[in-house]
Amino acid sequence: MTGPPDDCLARNEWICGDYLSTRRQILVDAVVQHLQLTSVSVLIALAVALPLAVLARRFGWAAGPVLALTTVLYTIPSLAMFSLLLPVYGLSAPLVVAGLVLYSLTLLVRNILAGLRAVPEETRQAARGLGYGPIRLLLTVELPLALPAAMAGVRIAMVSAVSLVTVGAIVGFGGLGNLIYSGMNTYFKAQVLTASALCVVIAVAADLLLLGVQRALTPWTRAVRA
C-alpha cells in the first residue's frame, strides 16, 4: 500500500516545481490567451485613438469633448465596464477586448494629443515653408515628433491591459486571471502565485519590448541626449 503522495502539490505549498511540470499546457494556454487579449485590445485602441487625437488637434473644439468622454470611460471601474458590455457581447472574448479598448483609448488619446501639441510651431512653419501640405506635414513631421509621447502612452496602456485582463475571469476570458479565479475557489496556492507572477513578468517584458521598439523608432532622441 502506498499512502497519498507527499509532494508540494499535496501539501499545497506556494512555490511548487511539480505544479509547473504537471500543468505546463494549462499555463501555456493561459499565457497565450492573455497575450492575445492584451495585444489585440491595444492595437484596436491605437487604431481608434490615432484619428481621434489628430481630429482633436486639428479642430480645437473637438479636444474638450474627446478628452471628457475618454476621462469618463476611464473612471468607470473595470468590473463595471465588463458588466455594462455584457448585454452587447455576452460571455465572450470580444467583451473583454472591448472593455480593454475603452480603457486604453483614454491613455492613448491623451498621450498622442500631448505629443502633437508639443510639436514646436516653428517646426511646423518651417515644414510649410518647404511646401509641405497638411497630410505630408502630419505624416512626416508631426507624427514622428509626437512618437516618444505616443509610445509612452502605448507602454502605459499595455501594462495596464496586462493587469486588467485578469478581471475578465468573471466572464471566463481572463487569460491567467482564469487560473487565479479557479485557484481561489479551490484554495490552490501554487496556481494563484504562479499565475500572478506570470502576469507581472508579462507586464515587465511587454514594457521592455515596447521601450526597445521606441528606441529603434526614434534614433534622434538618443543622439540629442548623448
Binding site: S160, T166, G177, I180, Y181, G183, Y187, V192, S196, C199
Partner: peptide
C-alpha cells in the same frame, strides 16, 4: 507607481485571501 500598475489588483486580492 509603475510597479502598482503592473501588478494585477485581482491577483493581489486572491493572494492576500489565501
Amino acid at each position: 507607481s509603475n510597479v502598482g500598475r503592473a501588478v494585477p489588483t485581482f491577483a493581489v486580492l486572491v493572494l492576500l485571501l489565501l
